[in-house]
């Protein structure tokens, strides 16, 4: 149990906080996490708990579901980024809003409320929506 916990903590804290977002049709560009948020992260313990939970979900629960999210970045990544960007309360609420928007009608709003849809390798068609 201790080994598992230490593995989770290590994977959470040692990850490079990078995420892939589509750059052009069928292409991906690696954008690294903005270092200016790091200060916020170390200052706020609530952030660490929330981000830890999200990382746990991403590593152990999400893979069992497969590619189900309609958006890019995915809902968990969106919440992760928005928590780091806007803080624990507003970021979390934004993430919940995103979960509610991730439904059967997403593609109807491409062109009006969402700007574009892209084909990402091994992930399929995704609607672009950044925090």
């Amino acid at each position: 149990m201790n080994l598992l916990l230490s593995l989770i903590i290590a994977s959470t804290l040692l990850s490079d906080y990078s995420y892939e977002v589509p750059f052009e049709k069928g292409d991906t560009q690696k954008i690294y996490y903005d270092e200016s948020y790091d200060k916020k992260l170390t200052d706020n313990s609530v952030n660490i708990i929330l981000l830890f939970g999200l990382r746990f979900y991403q590593i152990f629960i999400s893979p069992s579901q497969g590619e189900v999210c309609n958006f890019s970045p995915s809902c968990s990544n969106y919440m992760f980024q928005s928590i780091r960007k806007y803080g624990p309360i507003f970021g979390f609420v934004k993430g919940i809003d995103r979960l509610q928007r991730c439904n059967f009608s997403v593609r109807d709003y491409v062109g009006t409320f969402y700007d574009s849809i892209v084909l990402i390798e091994k992930r399929g068609f995704k609607v672009i929506d950044k925090p």
Partner: peptide, 25 residues
């Protein structure tokens, strides 16, 4: 309660960006 909070924010935000997005379209 959590989803209710998200709903309040989402409805506010969707109404806020509605005009801008429609004009853009």
């Amino acid at each position: 309660a959590v989803f209710y909070l998200g709903e309040l924010y989402g409805s506010f935000n969707s109404a806020k960006i509605y005009y801008e997005k429609k004009v853009n379209r």
